[in-house]
Design a protein around this nucleic acid. Structure first.
Ligand SMILES: [Mn+2]
Ligand SMILES: [Mn+2]
Ligand SMILES: [Zn+2]
Ligand SMILES: [Zn+2]
Lengths: 149, 149
DNA sequence: AAATCTCTTGCAAAGGAGTGTCATTATCAT
DNA sequence: ATGATAATGACACTCCTTTGCAAGAGATTT
């Protein structure tokens, strides 16, 4: 229920949900905290985490990411590159933020303004559809890759 | 270059791109035309097509869907259920339309208004990102599933 | 501190969508 | 009809992800 995501607060959250605080989970969490602005795949987390603890298994990484997403610490994204990518969720967000995906270099940047409220209002009325969440991605070319396109 | 999607016009388009007009491709195309409002997966197309021609292979379905997407007849969508889903593209669309995905029954409905133009203008200016396309999905509950949620 | 209970781990195997290989077959221009 | 070339179907294979399982901790109680 904290707003700030410290290592300790997340550990407490795990304990409160009666998840055991194993060294593997702590290492994965710490690694993620050091890469807080990135959108990492399970494989990438695995590689990073192996520097700290070469004994860790890929399945454990997958399971831990699942748990962290389940308790609301991480968000699971699909940017269309064939693997799920995780990032810290921001508690203050009403909805998820949007993503700009560069078709040149694959870099993912973010766009925070919602601006979808009015669109959602229209949809709710016109389609009788109760919106819980949205997922908005823009595909194009970033500033570096933009030349020539 | 036609606006109306008839079987014949698409056959001509295939021929013009020097794709051979095989019975398998014709069957797949016809089947799709009979399900024009749906968002079918390769496996679903395969099942439908097998009624007409039980000899057809799944790989051929995948290859044909690829071709039809490549020549702009079909759109390839990812609704997060682990398989690609195809639908007819509408030539008149400036951008892709949006999708409402029901978390109850999985039904996919559509939302045509763009309304993302202003958002895109902001993004282009603020993020120096050249937008080519977008992908907007709303997750929630449809009218039928809406009760109790 | 030891025992106990339960959860977790690492490994290997299995799933599942999609792609590649290749011998055989079909299309289409001539 | 013939031949160049492309397409097909079967199946093996890739890739990401999940699962089964025996062994190994973490937490909790004595
Ligand atoms: Mn993000
Ligand atoms: Mn659609
Ligand atoms: Zn780029
Ligand atoms: Zn529904």
């Amino acid at each position: 229920m904290e707003d700030v995501k410290t290592f300790e607060s997340i550990c407490n959250l795990l304990r409160n949900r009666s998840y055991k605080l194993t060294p593997q989970r702590q290492t994965i969490l710490q690694t993620f905290l050091e890469q807080a602005d990135r959108h990492l795949s399970a494989e990438e987390v695995y590689m990073l985490v192996k520097h700290q603890n070469p004994e860790i298994g890929l399945a454990t990484v997958y399971r831990t990411l699942d748990i962290l997403a389940e308790i609301g610490i991480l968000l699971k994204n699909d940017f269309g590159d064939g693997r799920s990518r995780y990032e810290f969720s921001r508690k203050d967000e009403h909805h998820h933020h949007h993503h700009l995906i560069c078709l040149g270099c694959g870099n993912v940047s973010e766009f925070d303004d919602d601006l979808l409220e009015s669109l959602e209002a229209v949809i709710i009325k016109r389609n009788k559809f109760k919106i819980l969440d949205h997922d908005l991605k823009f595909y194009g070319y970033c500033h570096e890759c933009g030349e020539g396109h």
